[in-house]
Nucleic acid binder design. Structure first.
Lengths: 258, 258
DNA sequence: TCACTCGACTGGCTTAAACCACTTCCCCTA
DNA sequence: TAGGGGAAGTGGTTTAAGCCAGTCGAGTGA
């Protein structure tokens, strides 16, 4: 009784969302399956289409469904995590000769690759210059922008800033970094040892630009990760910022028990 | 020209959102300041109120503004990060005698405290039992639920499972854990040394329940963090899950350069 | 057989109007 | 002076209608 009363005083959109949520969580609506259309949901509940739309927005914000323009609204499939731990440079990874991203993709049966958007010598933003401990009034950093793909999904946007004094002569200006371990592999080959000294992780909804570039469905937050490393001399040598979709890729740190 | 054309073919709500975004990023609308009301925005742009509303939703999803029922829409203040690195048990923290959360709150000039929601001996969920390497068919774990407050903001929801064999006799069943370093301090006092072996971080929109309990404004994602630790004998001794609002608390790992 | 077009369907955006719920503050009363 | 009531203003929800834009398949034509 109390339940019914409580349910009835809630907004209609919340009630529609609850019914759909129940169907999804009980498995009656399987992952990947299409929900009834907005118009059908509205008619079925005797509501306006906007009310059904609001219900779907609620589910979408909860990560249960994803809307695709012209196709329909679909139940989300379970997230596939991508490893992104703090032991990124540990021997466990180095031994494979692959970057952690490629390695995780391989384990998940996906084809991973970096697409280079741009490589250029630029003047860094003030915050980047400060963290890299360099002057920000001259074009003193190498800035690389990549997109990492897992199969056909754009997974993360990566921007890396490296002091020009470290980058010059490394071949990092090429579109195709000649090392399957990526930039870090090239730098290690040149005698640099790297230590992570700062990492910052935030979650937020994507900007329209990010939504475009990462091809994000509605309601998917992004993880915004920033980290810096120093080399063996204590000099900051790299600042990297990732923006990655949070539904297909989480962050994982997993130490095997020996 | 091209810009204008491009802008004109975009939805009106996106254009309103862009103008507000510009005002916010340029500082003309300062953090904490109130935006024009939906009705005023609509009239000013010659649009319907719903269109202004949609614009605000876009900004809200991007974490730029937050809507408060009956009061208005406000520019977000800059996130105050809470440290949550993998060096949680390092001497740097131990020396202070405070848990990392309390320490970070102190540094940020906020009063942090744990509110205990429940402490009980229960049967763990299957996944928890598996990670703690115990049988899941008897009430064999201590389960604690806390809410962590920073000043008057409910910041994170914490659930901790500890094998009963480890928990019994520690005083962990009390509402008030007798140690400012928290559960981990109590366990360390009893001779346990802990090592983080698994950490998983995801971002998603909150469930309605979480939105209630954490008192979340619209458009704020949560970070969902799960980790386990082992003791000196290699036995899993703890599984903790945090759900924390992503706008007031990020995750940070910060090693000072010596 | 291939390529294209078109129609039916999907979600996305907008309008205009109404009512509800919450907050704030002012004014009036006890 | 302290408290309560109410008005005004805010965001939240809903309705009903229309048009736009993307998807997909059936059918047509070369």
């Amino acid at each position: 009784m109390t339940d019914t009363e409580q349910a009835d005083r809630r907004p209609a959109s919340a009630r529609i969302a609850d019914e759909l949520r129940r169907l999804i969580e009980s498995g009656e609506l399987a992952p990947g399956e299409r929900l009834p259309s907005e118009r059908e949901l509205a008619e079925r509940h005797g509501s306006a289409r906007n009310t059904a739309r609001q219900a779907i927005r609620l589910l979408s914000e909860n990560g249960l469904v994803t809307a695709e323009h012209g196709r329909g609204v679909f139940v989300r499939t379970r997230p596939a995590l991508i490893r992104l731990g703090n032991d990124r440079y540990s021997p466990r990874y180095r031994d494979t000769g692959l970057s952690p991203y490629l390695l995780e993709c391989a384990k998940a049966g996906k084809a991973g690759r970096f697409e280079v958007l741009s490589v250029e010598r630029t003047t860094p933003p003030a915050e980047v210059a400060a963290r890299l401990n360099i002057a920000d009034d001259e074009p003193s950093v190498l800035c690389r922008e990549n997109v990492f793909w897992a199969d056909s999904d754009p997974m993360q946007r990566v921007t890396t800033w490296i002091p020009w004094t470290i980058a010059e002569g490394t071949g990092l200006l090429l579109d195709d970094v000649p090392h399957s371990y990526g930039i870090h592999g090239v730098l290690e080959d040149r005698g640099h040892t790297m230590t992570r000294i700062y990492e910052e992780i935030n979650a937020r909804m994507p900007s329209p630009d990010e939504r475009d570039r990462l091809d994000l469905p509605t309601g998917v937050p992004v993880l915004d990760v920033l980290h810096t490393s120093i080399d063996q001399d204590g000099q900051p040598y790299e600042l990297t910022r990732f923006v990655l979709r949070a539904d297909l890729s989480g962050l994982r740190y997993d130490v095997p028990v020996e």
